[in-house]
C-alpha cells in the first residue's frame, strides 16, 4: 500500500498519460483530489492536551503545510455480454510544497485544459450578440 509520491514533473507526465488513456478508451472518469498533507510531515499535530486547549489549531498552522494531490481512474471488471474490459486502477499522487503551489497550479490548469476534451465549446453565436450589446452600451455611456 505504501506508494511513493511522484515528483511534480513525473506527476504531470503520468497525468497526461491518464487523460490520454481515457480519451483512447472513449469513456471513463478521471478523479483529481487535493487535500492538506498532515500525515508524516515535519509539523506534527499538537498533543491531545494542546488540542483541548485550542481546538481550532489547524486553522492557523505554525508553518504552511504541503498539499497532497491525487489522480486516479476507475477500475472496471470484465462483464460478460458487454464490451467491458478489465481495467486496473491507476493511482498517482504527488506532494506540492507551499512555495511551489502557484507554479504547480499554472501547469495543472494547462494539463487539465489539454486533457479534458469533449466538453462543450463556447457558444460563439450567442457571444457575438452579447458583445455587440455591450459595445452599444459602452458607446452610449
Amino acid at each position: 500500500m505504501a506508494r511513493e509520491h511522484l515528483t511534480n514533473d513525473e506527476f504531470f507526465t503520468q497525468l497526461a498519460n491518464l487523460f490520454e488513456y481515457t480519451r483512447t478508451k472513449g469513456h471513463g472518469s478521471v478523479y483529481l483530489t487535493q487535500k492538506r498533507m498532515t500525515f508524516d510531515t515535519s509539523s506534527t499535530p499538537p498533543s491531545p492536551t494542546k488540542f483541548a486547549d485550542d481546538p481550532l489549531w489547524d486553522t492557523h498552522p505554525e508553518e504552511p503545510l504541503p498539499i497532497l494531490i491525487r489522480a486516479s481512474n476507475n477500475k472496471s471488471d470484465k462483464k460478460k455480454g458487454t464490451d467491458r474490459e478489465h481495467i486496473d486502477k491507476i493511482k498517482l499522487s504527488t506532494l506540492v510544497k507551499p512555495d511551489g503551489l502557484d507554479a504547480f497550479y499554472i501547469r495543472y490548469v494547462d494539463a487539465c485544459k489539454v486533457g479534458m476534451t469533449g466538453l462543450k465549446k463556447r457558444d460563439k453565436k450567442k457571444k457575438k450578440t452579447t458583445k455587440k450589446k455591450a459595445a452599444e452600451g459602452e458607446t452610449k455611456v
Binding site: F19, T22, G26, S29, V30, Y31, L32, T33
Partner: peptide
C-alpha cells in the same frame, strides 16, 4: 478535501 471528476 476537494475532488474534481472529469467523466466521459
Amino acid at each position: 478535501r476537494i475532488t474534481s471528476k472529469y467523466s466521459v
